[in-house]
Every structure is written in structure tokens, then in C-alpha cells.
Design a protein around this nucleic acid. Structure first.
Lengths: 205, 205, 205, 205
DNA sequence: AATGAATGAGCGTTCATTCAT
DNA sequence: AATGAATGAACGCTCATTCAT
């Protein structure tokens, strides 16, 4: 089975693009720089991707799909995890994708484009939390009822939002406010549990 | 032709730049577009500002200074506001500056540059909250003690973070999840008070 | 007699323009830089000069007129100078104006424009040398005869040319070839006398 | 449309750049003009050259290397040339490159930058003259001894300098002073031989 | 699967110049 | 006599993209 190298190249391009987008933003990153970082010719990017947007699109869709898969496994996993374990597991999942998540946030903050990735991402995650909190199958949930909407708002702004900000900003936060990694982790987890988890999962504790 | 005087022009440039940066990001907004929106020649921007960075820098520094002034007035104001009033007042302050705040967030999420505006912004705000929660003068606070650091982490990730995400994302959130403005406001405020405010201000409630 | 400052300003502009032109060339020097160096507003340059060309024109014409005056005095001076004295005096005259002379050379080397300053400059100087060598009044000289033309070629390429190159390049030459100022002066004067002066003034030695 | 292959394009760019630089100076020549003259897009220049400086750098280094090669051949050539032949050959070599040589002179006259091309150029040439005058191999020469330094000064200011001025200014000189080409050539050669060559090569005549 | 060469459009910036004050 | 504010045009350079090979 001769390795044609094509897949490796595409993966390398995606890897470098993710890194560079997270460093300089999507608009701030040139095709040339990605190509150079990936060690290929500029034109090669256009063999593997339709255009520059296709690269970020692929990165974001892949990430959302992967997160979805990961969380699905946790939910269907019978070995009962404690609340702290679950939180850590979820944060770990985000942390592994912090670069592309930072890109997603940047793009979502733009006021004109309808870049829905963040909401799509959040919706997937909340599905699992809500399903678990209701002891129901995902297919049984009524996503239009006010109860879900209220749940979603709470989840989005006091659960997912803080989590994503934490993993995308923690290094710069530590640097600016001179906090050790352990301290920051501990303080954040404590605050998060006390605030967010106490309330929305209260029946389950 | 319209030589209406320098300060008015400068203000107009800043106003349009803020709008456009929030729509397309800093890197995604061209000098030309700003100039055209402000009704002046491209070169005029360079009469009033050193370079493109000087524009965003001015916008952000001005915003932070203004927020600082506003919050200072609330703190030193004797008419005792209730907790809901205070929260609404603060959210209103952010909302009035939601465009430039969105820009601040986008820029702060970039992984390479040390764009400290967000942390500088947050530090100013937390000062007042912390000072109030401790019934102390700002000058008396020891910003290096662990107690403050813990407070800061909680405030940043479960207070300021969610607030800024709320005001910068609310319109797109409403659109995506089909929630009315009143509903979203109500749900968010409720969630915020139940989660965040219950804890960090508990002695004051 | 109240000093209106106008003359001082104009002189300062000329002084700074000369310096900057000699450093970065005429095209390489912006109006802005000259104004800043002179401590005045850009628009002030246009009060004193028609345009950018007027500045260099004024500088060059003034220089040529001054050199003319200086050399006229030497010629009509009865106190007989030796050949070395005369050479040193002439070199000194150039050295005092080395910046603007460098500018003159740069501009004259451009292949398209008919920037005649260098030839005008050279013609003035050769007049005196030729007049002296012929013991004639300047007005008596026939500038169209072959004898003068031959003299002029010799003077221009083996007399004035080397002299101007010497004063405009000596500092950089010293730096590049690690020669002391004294050594360079001595070597040049010796070479110049042995080569150029020996021949064209032979009857006068 | 005319995708005739990279090297041809690069050569054409260099050819036109040389022409235009010599006409308007380096700073006075726009990238756009070069591109248009070469029949290519502006961006194509940046595919072949790092920046504008890279173009002039390439031109000057190439010229110096070519002159070096040419002179090396003359020196190692056994067929003994007479002094007039050698001079004519050398002048011819310069004349073929008079445009880029004019550029080199202009740039070297700027007082601030350390543009060493002229001295590098001169050093190469003097090596051969000195080596010949001493009947030595180039590798045997001690370039730090006073004898060489003195030789170098003489060569530079009374040999190379006049030669370069001659080839770069001859057309404009002819025009200004109404001399025929033959006359100017004859007068210059005669003056040069009588002055410069008589002395520095006296043992060899 | 990948590249060298090229491009049109746009980038941020500076240019010399104008003019009402 | 001098300036603050403004401009159109040009600057050097980079952009995302194309295409023959």
C-alpha cells in the first residue's frame, strides 16, 4: 500500500493553518505563510482546498464533529464519572483544540458575517448536558420549548462561554496576572463548580 | 472640500473605524474603507493617526478610560443602587461600547501578540467590585495577595467574561436560537444573578 | 531694525535641505523631513519656495555663484600664491560646500534630465584657470577654439572631476580603505600635482 | 499572458531596471515603471526579487563580477597589449556598463548609507593594475602596506574616477560643450595618458 | 500530487502640493 | 510669515488566486 503522501500533505496544511490562524487571526494569516510553514508550494493549497475559506471551514467542521464524537462517548459510557471528572474531561477536550477554538471565537465575534460555528458547536454540547439532566434520549428533546431555551442561555453564557474563554486565554491570563498554572486551574475549577454547576445540575448532585 | 475642522474629522474616523473593525475585524478592515466611510481621503487618516494601529489603540484606550470613569462615578455615588440596578447599569455601560469591546475580544484571542487591553480592562473593573466587596478604598487593596487573585479569577471568567460575551453575541444568538430580546435578557440576567452574583457578593446581598 | 525671522527661516530650510539631500539624494528626501529638520511646518516651505525643485535650484545656483565669487577674488588677488597654496585654497572652497556638491554630482549623473549645473560649475572654474594660464582677461577668451576645448576636457576630467570626487568621497574612502585623514590628503595632493598640475600648468610652473 | 519562462522575465526586469535607474536614479524610479517597461505585472517583480533593493543589488553585484572576470582574462592573456589598447579595452568594458555604473556612482555619493559598491568595484580593478605593475600574483600582494595604499589613492582618484566620469558624462558633456564624439574621445585619451598613465605605469612604458 | 510563474486588486503608507486662516 | 488640515496620486509591497506543466 504505497503512501502517496497526499493525505500527509493535507493534514500538514491543516495543522499549520490552525496554528497560524490562532496566532494572527484568519484575515491576518496569508496563504503564503501557511504554505511555507507546511513546506509546500502555495499552489498546492489550491489542489487540496477550494480556497482560503475552505481551509478554515474544514478545520472548524472537523473540530465540531470530533468534539461531538468525544462527548457522545462520554454520555453513552456507563462507567459513572463524577462531576469533577466530567468537567475535567470536557475541559481537556477543549484544551486539545484550543487553537482552533480561539479562531472560532474570533470569527464569531465579527458583527457582520453569519459565522454560525460557535452556536453550532454550543448546541451540540448542550444537547448532551440537557439530555443527561433530563434523563432523556437526544431524539426525544423538544428544542423549541422555553425550558430548553432557558437552559441553553444559561449553559451558553455561564458554562460554555467561560470554559472556552478559560482555555483560550489561560496562558495570557497567567502571564499578565502572575498566577501559576496550578493556582489558575484550581481557582477556575472551584469558581466554575460553585457558580455554574451548582445551579444547572443541582438535581443531579 | 468639507474642511470642517480637525477634531470633528478625527472623531468621525474613530467612529467609522470602530464600526468597521467590529464588523470585519481589525485585519479585515482596510484603511481605504474607513476613509470612505468617514468621507475623507485616505491620506487624511495619516494626518490624524500615526498608522493603522494607532487607530485601534486610540479606540481601546479611550474606551477603557471611559469605562473607568463611569464605574468610578457609580462607586462614589452615594445613592445606594440595588444589585439588579448595578448589574443593569454595568451591562448598559458595556452595551454602549459593544462594538469596540468585540474588537478588543477578537484581538485578545490572538495567540501571539501580547495585546493586553482585555486584561487591563478587566483589572480596572474588578478593582471597583473588589473594593466594594471589601468595603475598602482602592488604594488600600493588596493586589498580590492570594485572596485577590482568587477573586480576580472568579470575576474574570464567571463575571466579566460572560457579560462581555453576552453583549457582543446577543444579537447573533437571538437570531440563531430564535429567542426574543426580552426573553434573552431575562434568562441571562437570571442566570447571571443566580450563578455569579450569588456567590461573589454573598455577604452583600 | 526688527528681525522678522523670515530670512532666518529660509536659510534654515536651505541648510537642512542641503544636508538631507546629500544624505539621501534629492528624490530620496521628503518635504516633510526637511520641514521637520528646519523646525517649521510643511506649508512654510511653499511660502518660501515655489516647489521642491526650487529648493535644490536655489542651493545649486547659490553655490555656483559663491564659488565664482571666491575664485574671482583669488585671481584678482595680487599676492602671488604658490601652486600648492592655490590648490589647497580651491580644495578648501569645495570642501566647504561638499554636501551640495555631492547633490550636484548625483543629479548630473542621471541620464535623462538635462541638469547642467555640473557643467556650468565646471565652466566657471575653468575660465579662471584658462585665463590665468593664458595671461588674458576672461572677456578676451575664445571659448569656441579647439585649444580651449582641449583644455576644458583635460581640466574637467583630470582636474575638477578628481577634485570633486575627492572631497565628496574622502570620508567614505578613508573608512573603507582604512587610511588616515592625513595620509589620504597627502597621497591625493601628491598624485594630483604629479599628474594633473604638472601638465596643464606646465608653462606656469 | 506571455508566460515565457522565468529566467527570461527576470533578465528583462533587470535590463529595464538598469535603464530606468540610470535615467531617474534609484529612488526616482518606481516599481510600477520598471514592471511596465518589462511588460510584466508589478507583483511579478516580487516573485523574482525580494524587494526593490534586491534589484539594484543584483545589478551591481553582477556588474562587478563581470568586470572582474573580464579584467582577469586580460591579465592572464598572453598576447601583449599595448598601453593604448589596454586603456581602450578597459574603457570599452566600462562603456558597455555605463548605465549601471552611473547608478553605482549616484548611490555611492549619498552621505549616509554605506553603499560600498564603488569601492569594492575599484578595489577589484586596482588589484589587477597593481599586480601587473609589480609583476606579481594577486595572492602575493600585501594590501595593507603604505605602498599599496598610495597606489590605490592615485589609481582611484586620477585613474578610475576620471574614467568612470568620462563614460557616464561623455554624452551630456558633448551636448553641453559642443564637442564631437571623436574630438572628446581623442582629447580625453590624450589627457588621461599624459596625466595618469605616464606616472603610475612609468616603469612599464 | 505538486509546482513555478504569473496576475489584478488591494494593502498600508508617503508623496508633493494646496488653501483657508 | 506661518500653519493645520486636507488631498490625489503614487509609493513599495502583499493578497488570494490561476494555470500550464
Amino acid at each position: 500500500m504505497p503512501r502517496t503522501g497526499g493525505d500527509k500533505t493535507k493534514a500538514k496544511i491543516l495543522r499549520m493553518a490552525e496554528k497560524l490562524f490562532s496566532e494572527n487571526g484568519f484575515a491576518g494569516t496569508g496563504i503564503e505563510k501557511i504554505a511555507r510553514a507546511a513546506g509546500v508550494n502555495k499552489a498546492t493549497l489550491y489542489y487540496h482546498f477550494k480556497d482560503k475559506n475552505d481551509i478554515i471551514h474544514t478545520l472548524l467542521e472537523t473540530m465540531i464533529k470530533d468534539i461531538d464524537t468525544t462527548l457522545h462517548q462520554v454520555v453513552t459510557d456507563n462507567t459513572s464519572m463524577g462531576i469533577r471528572e466530567k468537567l475535567n474531561f470536557e475541559l481537556k477536550s477543549y484544551l486539545d483544540r484550543k487553537n482552533i477554538i480561539a479562531v472560532m471565537l474570533m470569527e464569531s465575534l465579527k458583527n457582520d458575517t453569519t459565522t454560525d460555528y460557535l452556536f453550532k458547536f454550543a448546541a451540540k454540547i448542550v444537547q448532551y448536558h440537557y439530555g443527561a439532566s433530563q434523563n432523556r434520549e437526544l431524539s426525544e428533546i423538544d428544542y423549541t420549548c422555553d425550558n430548553f431555551k432557558k437552559y441553553m442561555v444559561n449553559e451558553f453564557f455561564t458554562g460554555i462561554g467561560p470554559s472556552l474563554l478559560f482555555i483560550t486565554l489561560k496562558d495570557k491570563y497567567r502571564n499578565y496576572f502572575s498566577v501559576s498554572e496550578e493556582q489558575l486551574n484550581e481557582y477556575f475549577i472551584e469558581a466554575f463548580i460553585k457558580n455554574h454547576l451548582t445551579n444547572h445540575n443541582s438535581p443531579k448532585l
